[in-house]
Write a protein that binds this DNA or RNA. Structure first.
Lengths: 208, 208
DNA sequence: ATTATCTATAGATCTATAGATAATGC
DNA sequence: ATTATCTATAGATCTATAGATAATGC
């Protein structure tokens, strides 16, 4: 655990920076703090990454990629639309469960620093398949609508519904914990229940 | 507009502080900046509010109150459950529309400063009727569940669904704008559509 | 007299860099 | 020789306060 099996300072700094940025965001994390967490001198952080901004970009870029990848990945190709969607929502939830600080980091930095929105924009348009994945989802949604199995709605709304329900839950966990004080042993159950509720609610919500 | 009809510096400072805190959060707003926005000297900010922290608490408290009030307010007493819920969700959405920076401020500060969670906690338990409002909603929800008009679910989930969908939409507006570049004249339509979608999705989502 | 406003400044950070020293690779 | 790490420090903020001056209320 505490051994850091010869990870090399450069990488260790990146890791600790990641942890701290995820926890408190860019503004509230100092290079002094990062250095202390990595067990080195503050100057070394700048030696490897030049500026705090560049270090942050490195972290942010990888996290944005992670966040998008799941949303866009299609696994169950041509299964039943509803089954496919159920899996997608669940996979997105699971990704966030593994990275619970992700929504806060992305939201916070996209909101407070317009420059980061450009990064997101590039990242979206870069993956050329992103667009095609999007179009494919749109297509299958429209097919269901014309079959009458889904009510009239746009892909944009569907995606927003998924991100809203999933991301906001993880955004609010620290608050829920603080206000209602969920016991550690019931935490897992609480999250599992919410996972099911989110999926059910979204799927039910698109019915005609 | 620019006249500040004899508003007195004390109040003007509070107003400008509110604007800035809503826009960028506590950490990224300096008392220097607040003073400049109010057109006075930085020392005056401290003269009236002593510390930046106290000034912030004043703003935060009023915003928390606002946010809770709508969620808890019951207007349509004993109407139809679904009609009542539809109104509630819409009213919450409308409040956020008037205060689009509210979700970000509250989320950001509750996440980065644990102390603020205590403030929220107190605020919730202070309004003694808060609990009763909550219980009343729970009661009518359970009635519907036993009638078979709503699927099995908890009040907590229902409330989380509403806040998730409403708050997250306003959280993401700057991002959506930045990425997709919504034109100013279509903005209103976009928001109106989302309002309808949110209501429909939540109401549909709780059906058995 | 009291209250509002300003100027000036101390003391805390924090980022970034310069320059010294230690570790490592041929 | 080159790369990694450290010490020290300049320069930018930023918060908070002390102390001077201007405005206002009796």
């Amino acid at each position: 655990m505490e051994v850091d099996t010869k990870k090399g300072m450069e990488e260790l700094i990146l890791e600790k920076a990641e942890e701290l940025f995820l926890e408190k965001g860019y503004a509230l994390t100092s290079t002094v703090e990062i250095a202390k967490a990595a067990g080195c001198n503050q100057a070394l952080v700048h030696y490897y990454y030049r500026t705090k901004e560049r270090l942050f970009q490195k972290v942010f870029l990888s996290k944005i990629g992670l966040f998008l990848s799941i949303l866009l990945k299609i696994d169950g190709q041509e299964e039943d639309f509803f089954m496919n969607l159920r899996k997608k929502i669940g996979a997105h939830f699971d990704l966030l469960m593994k990275n619970p600080g992700l929504p806060f980091l992305i939201l916070n930095e996209l909101t407070t620093n317009k420059r980061n929105i450009l990064i997101l924009k590039e990242e979206i348009s870069k993956g050329e398949n992103n667009r095609s994945v999007f179009l494919k989802l749109e297509e299958s949604l429209n097919k269901e609508i014309s079959k009458g199995t889904v009510r009239e709605m746009t892909v944009m709304d569907l995606i927003l519904n998924i991100i809203s329900m999933n991301a906001f839950f993880f955004l609010s966990i620290p608050i829920i914990k603080g206000v209602f004080g969920i016991e550690e042993n019931k935490k897992k159950e609480f999250i599992e229940n919410r996972r099911e509720e989110v999926i059910t609610s979204i799927l039910n919500g698109i019915r005609p």
